[in-house]
């Protein structure tokens, strides 16, 4: 097991390396530069700045410099918020995004699973139809629409919740709900479908023949078998949600990583874009390893090689 994890981490480093390299060279294809503003500075000033940050050197040399620094653990300094290092910006954003993300994932898993199990158990009945309606809606409508509709309705029309920021528990309600909306709906669909499949299996009939209660059959014998697709989905989703949803962070003006990524991209803040991309790649790799280990724990038939 330990050997497996080490091997996977090692392979993951290659993935991160590939992502780093590709992103680095892709960034040069994007027009514009970090020092262009509405009131453009003179050419000399830009040349001076480019020289100071090493952006005047050939790309390959820049790449070499960046990678050497990266190996030392140095992600560089933000070109826009020059008083901060990239690392500081990522960490401060991650704390905010992850706090929202963990809450959202918890809600999504709890409600998604309960909803999915209920829908499967009452297959074809009213409750099932209702839950399918909800989950189809949740999966089909993009988050920027639900988010803005929620914002308009709960904050502007009813003024129940504050519009922006994260200053009190009440501030968390809407962003977390919006963040959890899609995964809840998706998990509900997944659990429903795989539960329907599992409930038709022979070993469920065996469990019934043993005289077990419905509760035990569903939660002990069926759910664990129905969990694999959910875990598969949860890995990458957890990574994305921890890293912050830039739509929701933008709408609610939350200073998470998503926000940082938006401003970095719009401002061509190369080191920050690189930093966030590498961080995201790393978390996704980590989550995928975690998912594979969870697979093994849930289903003993799976062998990790």
């Amino acid at each position: 097991m330990l050997k497996y994890i080490i091997r996977r981490l090692f392979l993951g480093l290659f993935t991160v390396f590939a992502v780093t390299t590709i992103t680095f060279f892709l960034l040069f294809l994007v027009p514009g530069g970090p020092f262009l503003a509405e009131k453009a500075p003179s050419e000399e000033v830009i040349a001076e700045l480019n020289a100071r940050y090493g952006l005047d050197k050939p790309r390959v040399v820049q790449y070499k410099n960046y990678m050497v620094n990266l190996l030392k653990g140095d992600f560089g300094v933000s070109l826009k918020r020059r008083e901060y290092t990239v690392k500081e910006i990522i960490m401060s954003g991650f704390v905010v995004s992850a706090r929202l993300g963990v809450l959202a994932i918890l809600i999504a898993v709890i409600f998604g699973m309960i909803g999915g199990v209920l829908a499967a158990y009452y297959h074809g009945k009213f409750l099932d139809n209702l839950l399918v309606l909800f989950s189809t809606w949740g999966v089909a409508v993009p988050s920027f629409i639900t988010t803005i509709v929620f914002l308009l309705f709960f904050c502007v029309k009813l003024s129940i919740f504050p519009i922006m920021g994260l200053f009190s528990p009440l501030h968390y309600v809407l962003p977390v709900t919006c963040l959890a909306f899609y995964p809840t709906a998706y998990i509900m669909r997944l659990v429903r479908i795989s539960m329907l499949d599992v409930l038709g299996q022979d070993y469920i009939r065996t469990a019934r023949a043993k005289g077990l209660s419905t509760f035990k059959i569903i939660f002990k014998h069926a759910l664990r078998n129905a969990l694999l697709p959910v875990i598969t989905y949860l890995g990458p989703t957890l990574a994305w949600i921890l890293i912050g949803n830039f739509v929701i962070e933008k709408v609610f003006n939350i200073p998470g990583i998503g926000m940082a990524l938006i401003s970095a991209t719009l401002g061509r803040d190369y080191p920050l874009i690189m930093g966030i991309t590498i961080f995201l790649a790393f978390i996704i790799v980590l989550m995928n390893i975690l998912v594979d280990i969870l697979y093994k724990i849930i289903d003993p038939r799976i062998r990790l090689v």
């Binding site: 299996q201 022979d202 070993y203 009939r205 065996t206 469990a207 019934r208 023949a209 043993k210 005289g211 077990l212 209660s213 014998h221 664990r224 078998n225 849930i298 289903d299 003993p300 038939r301």
Partner: peptide
């Protein structure tokens, strides 16, 4: 019926390959 299943009447099924739950010892 649940009370008599397993104690009074029990059942052996056709396909032993799928009749046991794969995730429990």
């Amino acid at each position: 019926k649940r009370i008599i299943r397993g104690t009074e009447i029990s059942m052996i099924f056709q396909d032993p390959m799928t009749s046991l739950n794969p995730v429990y010892p």
